[in-house]
């Protein structure tokens, strides 16, 4: 969607702008990737595989703090979108950087949590629960990092005054990352029976 993009990009036979439609398709395929992992986790958990009682060892506080951080960053990114719609570039820029800051806090808490677990000997190969724990949260953290990088690029772009619609697109992606966490939180931190 550069300035010289093809005409095709600006057509909209469905009524949904092309960029947003593509992001929704991306979200649909991400549902399958995370959904597949979560489905496997649930299958093993309901099957009573030994090791899944270790869910009680995860830190509920850390999980809750991270949920809070992600929910708040979701708020800021949607406010960034609202601001850019009014044409307020500087405010939008600021809100995007609040969101990125939220991402850093999230990763910090995550790192603290991982450290604590590894010191206590709960490494990825200990049992199936910890394998799933590190795989799922790790994949999620990769999505967080990816989102932060893209957001940083976009923030400078909009300050220069182009590609405003991308704020909404990265917003949808960020909310999706938030949604995944909303489901990972009860699975990994709360349901410890």
């Amino acid at each position: 969607m550069s300035m010289h993009g093809p005409i095709a990009t600006h057509r909209s036979a469905t009524g949904v702008p092309t960029g947003r439609l593509a992001v929704w398709w991306l979200m649909a395929s991400e549902i399958f990737i995370f959904g597949g992992l979560i489905a496997c986790f649930v299958l093993f958990k309901l099957n009573g595989t030994p090791g899944f009682e270790d869910a009680s060892l995860t830190s509920l506080t850390a999980g809750a703090v991270n949920t809070f951080v992600l929910l708040t960053s979701s708020l800021t990114v949607v406010l960034a979108h609202a601001a850019i719609e009014k044409g307020d570039r500087e405010k939008s820029f600021l809100y995007i950087w609040y969101t990125i800051g939220g991402g850093f806090v999230f990763l910090g808490v995550k790192a603290y949590e991982y450290t604590g677990k590894i010191i206590n000997g709960h490494i990825i190969t200990e049992n199936l629960f910890w394998s799933f724990y590190y795989t799922m949260t790790g994949l999620h953290a990769l999505h967080v990092i990816g989102g932060m990088v893209i957001m940083a690029l976009i923030s400078f772009d909009i300050r220069k005054g182009h590609n405003y619609q991308r704020v909404e697109l990265i917003g949808i992606y960020w909310h999706f990352v938030d949604l995944i966490w909303i489901f990972l939180f009860p699975l990994l931190y709360i349901a410890n029976f």
Partner: peptide, 21 residues
Amino acid sequence: VGPLIAGAVMLFMDQRIGTSF
């Protein structure tokens, strides 16, 4: 393909990290 991408990640970790999915 989504579940298989998840599966490929799990298989790769089985191979290289030593998990036992």
